[in-house]
Nucleic acid binder design. Structure first.
Length: 382
RNA sequence: GGGACUAUGGUGUAGUGGUAGCACGGCAGUCUGUGGAUCUGUCGGGGCGAGUUCAAUUCUCGUUAGUCCCC
């Protein structure tokens, strides 16, 4: 179980600071949640992750079910013990992976539809369309294991069972993350599915883990409202907001704020999979308490370093002569120890230590940025 | 000193008397509930000098360089 207390609400935005108590410690909110899909933040061990100021991680039901198997994790004492991370954990339900494996693969798209994309026109996925490699039914999803091809099925009950075996502090209801180019009718029908699955998840859960219900609805205000009202009325411990929100970042923030209007605000709200540095202030002002995103670690592996004024591509040879740390004001291990020139060399030489050093910096940067925002909220300046 | 073989983008290699292809690489994009991935675009080439021919990277000769063998 968790306990959530809002300590201060901003008077100039929807932002708020709070404390989320779990049996593995307390989390200051709003907080960034690094992604540890396979029970690991890529390139870092749990001690290194802790040094980046991370308070909670998010592991993945789908991936861990396939490898090594949730029963293996359970036999090893659960996720906390397995990965030697004594702090709070949450697990994603696997719903997003269904999208990613299905329509995401078919259309070569992420969940966010880029306006510049010509291949993926909106409204091309009609009500009864199915992705090529899996089948989504009212009960759940049939798919083939990407590992050995065997037929598998995950529905709300299965997802909850897996998440109980994994043993995170916070688990998520199994939802359908609809493709961004889905028609209105598809989204409406998908929403019914997600809502029914939410009921099934609550019914199936036997553990004392906290569970968040997921709100969908795409970029339609009426569907977001309907979803928030339906899910918000159920006895969840918190809520997740998923899917995409349409258009630009401003519209995204407006849609999140709109959705929050229809949720009970005494419970924590997590925004799923959003968190580009340009999004941080917007989504916190909209009122979310936590959000996960692969960007800091994913971009780190491509050589993109986040700094106060934007980002640096450390694979660019111009940095070979740059004696400065990544960010002069940053107190992370990497910035205290190494220069841009050396990191640039490591990236260009494809040394794996480059990925680790930059992942560490980027996570520190994100956590630090959010910590500073918390401070501003406390001081009434945000 | 004599002989043989080879010479094509940055690297490794195809092929051809008429527009030189592939892989890797470089550069630029892409990336939001994970892709060290992928994808897209782009850069870049027949050692040098003669000859034959309408046309030579291709055929011939010379030259230079490299590799190997012999003395």
């Amino acid at each position: 179980m968790i306990e959530f207390n809002v300590l201060k609400k901003s008077k100039i935005s929807g932002a708020r600071v709070g404390i989320l108590k779990t049996s593995h410690g307390e989390i200051e909110t709003p907080t960034f949640v690094p992604v540890a899909t396979q029970a690991a933040v890529k390139t870092l061990d749990s001690f290194e992750v802790a040094k980046t100021g991370s308070q909670i991680l998010m592991a993945n039901t789908f991936h861990l079910h396939l490898k090594p198997g949730d029963k293996i994790v359970k036999a090893n004492g659960g996720l906390h013990e397995f990965m030697n991370w004594p702090k709070p954990l949450m697990t994603d339900s696997g719903g997003f992976q269904v999208f990613s494996l299905g329509f995401g693969t078919d259309f070569g798209t992420g969940k966010i539809l880029k306006s510049s994309s010509k291949k993926t026109q909106p409204n091309i996925i009609e009500t009864n369309a199915q992705p090529k490699s899996l089948r989504i039914t009212d009960q759940g999803v049939y798919f083939r294991s990407p590992i050995d091809g065997q037929q598998l099925f995950i529905g709300p009950k299965e997802s909850i069972k897996i998440q109980e075996n994994l043993g995170a502090d916070i688990i998520l209801a199994f939802d359908e993350c609809p493709p961004p180019m889905a028609s209105y009718e598809y989204l409406k029908k998908s929403l019914v599915k997600t809502h029914n699955w939410a009921l099934d998840c609550l019914k199936a859960k036997k553990s004392n883990q906290a569970i968040y219900g997921i709100i969908q609805g795409g970029f339609h205000k009426d569907l977001r409202k309907e979803s928030a009202q339906f899910i918000g009325a159920l006895p969840f411990d918190g809520f997740g907001i998923g899917g995409e929100f349409g258009g630009d970042k401003k519209k995204m923030a407006d849609m999140i704020a709109w959705t929050l209007n229809y949720l009970p605000r005494l419970k924590p709200v997590h925004l799923l999979g959003i968190g580009h540095p340009d999004d941080l202030e917007l989504i916190i002002k909209a009122g979310v308490d936590s959000f996960d995103c692969i960007i800091p670690t994913h971009y780190a592996r491509r050589g993109i370093a986040f700094v106060e004024k934007g980002q640096l591509d450390l694979t660019n040879p111009k940095f070979l002569k740059d004696q400065l740390p990544i960010d002069q004001k940053c107190l992370c291990f990497t910035c205290q120890t190494y220069r841009r020139s050396y990191l640039c060399h490591l990236f260009r030489a494809k040394e794996i230590s480059a990925l680790k050093l930059l992942s560490s910096h980027n996570l520190y940067f994100f956590n630090d940025k959010v910590a500073k925002i918390r401070e501003k909220i406390r001081n009434g300046k945000f």
